[in-house]
């Protein structure tokens, strides 16, 4: 397994938000985590990214334990995040955001190639490279956020609600991009409320409810589960 999460507990202060989470991502896989608002999806993804510190449990990438290392060193293990709401460095240019994505060691050494790759994936960003990122449209900001994460040369790309706040056409493009990134060999952990889309694209999926992973399996199996159909798809 490329990424293994075992018995992960996360709390905000005294308030627990995630219990006993376990999750596997194989090399080159797209894994989706679906569930309602406030179920703990972002908590899970932020804990893997090193933004939240777990109170208990293990996160291993290629066997290396990363749950206890300083947050700023998690990205050295090939983990990068496209956070919910994008969270760009909005007062900086597109190019500066991309540069900061490759702040650490190995990624910095191949920064120029990385920027070329991001520009070939999102040609509009080449034209807009000197624009202040905060002044761009939502879809373009999402491109910058994905580009910034790719600059870190991730083995696992964590994507937290990438379709949130985007128009349907742009959402369609976003999922195409996710597939393209995955075809380049990057594993993707996708957290989404857009369950149809998230299950359609995934190799494997987890359902999370009230801080616990309640079921997992092949997307087709989950889609045929009557309880899930009723709870999430309204059919």
């Amino acid at each position: 397994m490329l990424l293994e999460v075992r018995n992960l507990h996360v709390a905000y202060g005294d308030a627990p938000a995630l219990w006993e989470a376990a999750l596997d991502i194989g090399a080159g896989q797209i894994v989706s985590v679906v569930g309602p608002n406030g179920a703990g999806k972002s908590t899970l993804i932020n804990a893997i990214a090193g933004i939240l510190r777990p109170t208990h449990g293990e996160i291993r990438i290629d066997g290396a334990e990363i749950a206890r290392i300083p947050g700023y060193r998690v990205c050295d293990h090939g983990i990068a995040i496209v956070p919910e709401g994008r969270r760009l460095f909005t007062h900086m240019t597109v190019l500066e955001n991309l540069e900061l994505g490759s702040y650490r060691g190995a990624a910095r050494a191949v920064r120029d190639e990385g920027i070329e790759e991001v520009f070939s994936l999102f040609p509009i960003l080449r034209e807009r490279q000197n624009q202040i990122s905060g002044s761009m449209s939502g879809g373009q900001q999402q491109m910058v956020a994905i580009g910034r994460a790719l600059m870190a040369r991730p083995r696992v790309l964590l994507m937290d609600e990438p379709s949130l706040g985007l128009s349907p056409a742009v959402v369609e493009d976003m999922f195409k991009i996710i597939r393209m990134i995955n075809e380049r060999g990057v594993a993707v952990l996708l957290v989404e409320q857009n369950i149809n889309k998230a299950l359609e694209i995934a190799h494997h999926a987890y359902v999370i409810e009230q801080g616990r992973i309640v079921t997992s399996g092949q997307p087709s199996t989950l889609l045929s589960n009557p309880r899930i159909r009723e709870a999430y798809l309204g059919i």
């Binding site: 090193g50 300083p70 700023y72 900086m92 900061l100 994505g101």
Partner: peptide, 24 residues
Amino acid sequence: TTLGKALRAAAHDGPIAAAFGINA
């Protein structure tokens, strides 16, 4: 400079800056 930009990034959004390896 990269360090200066990193400082500004960390001031803007510390947790995300840290997720990209910036030791604020």
